[in-house]
Amino acid sequence: MNHPAPRVLRTVTGDLAADSVAGPALAHEHLVLDLDHRGDGAAVLDPVRHTAAVAAELTALREEFGLCLVVELTCRGMGRDVRTLARIARDAQIAVVAATGWYYEPFHTPEIGHSSIEELTGTLVREIDGGIGATGIRPGVLGEIGSHGDTPTAPETKVLRAGARAALATGLSVATHAQLGRGGIAQLELLTGEGLPAHRISIGHQDLLDDPAVHKELAASGAYVAFDTVGKDSYQSDDTRLRLLLALVEAGHADRVLLSCDISRHGYLRDEGGQGYGHLFRSFLPKARAAGVDDDLIDLMTRRNPLRFLTGARVEEF
Rank of each mutant, 00 (worst) to 15 (best):
A99C: 07
P197C: 11
D255A: 12
L142M: 05
D228Q: 07
A254C: 08
G101L: 03
G136L: 06
A291L: 08
I145L: 12
A213L: 14
D228T: 04
R308Y: 03
L242K: 08
L120Q: 09
H108T: 00
P24G: 10
T11H: 14
G66E: 03
L26E: 09
E144P: 06
E111T: 06
V32A: 12
D207Q: 00
P306M: 04
A98V: 09
S173W: 04
R303T: 06
E64T: 11
D239C: 04
A95L: 05
A186M: 07
A166K: 04
D81E: 10
S115P: 09
L297M: 13
Y224V: 00
K216V: 12
T302D: 12
G79M: 09
T121R: 14
G79F: 05
E119A: 15
A86Y: 01
E316N: 11
H215A: 07
A247R: 11
S202V: 08
G113L: 14
V293S: 05
M1S: 13
E217I: 05
T240V: 14
R165V: 06
A220V: 05
I117A: 14
G136T: 00
G163W: 02
G278A: 10
T109G: 12
G222E: 04
S202F: 00
S234N: 13
E217W: 00
C68F: 01
C75E: 04
N305R: 04
A99N: 04
R304W: 06
G41D: 01
L310F: 04
R7M: 15
L190W: 02
L172H: 06
G181V: 01
D210W: 02
E57W: 01
H177T: 00
V71F: 09
G184S: 04
I88C: 12
A86Q: 11
S202E: 07
D19H: 13
E316L: 12
P197V: 10
H177E: 12
R126S: 15
A43S: 14
K158P: 07
A18K: 00
T157R: 15
R76S: 13
V8F: 02
A5L: 15
S173L: 10
G278K: 01
Y224H: 09
Y268M: 14
P286R: 02
C68Q: 13
V12H: 07
C261L: 03
A98L: 11
L285W: 02
P47M: 11
Q187S: 13
L69Q: 02
F281D: 06
I88T: 08
R303M: 04
T229S: 15
A220M: 04
A89H: 03
T176M: 03
A99R: 03
D34C: 11
T170D: 09
P6E: 10
A95F: 01
M301G: 01
A25D: 08
L142I: 14
R270C: 10
R83I: 10
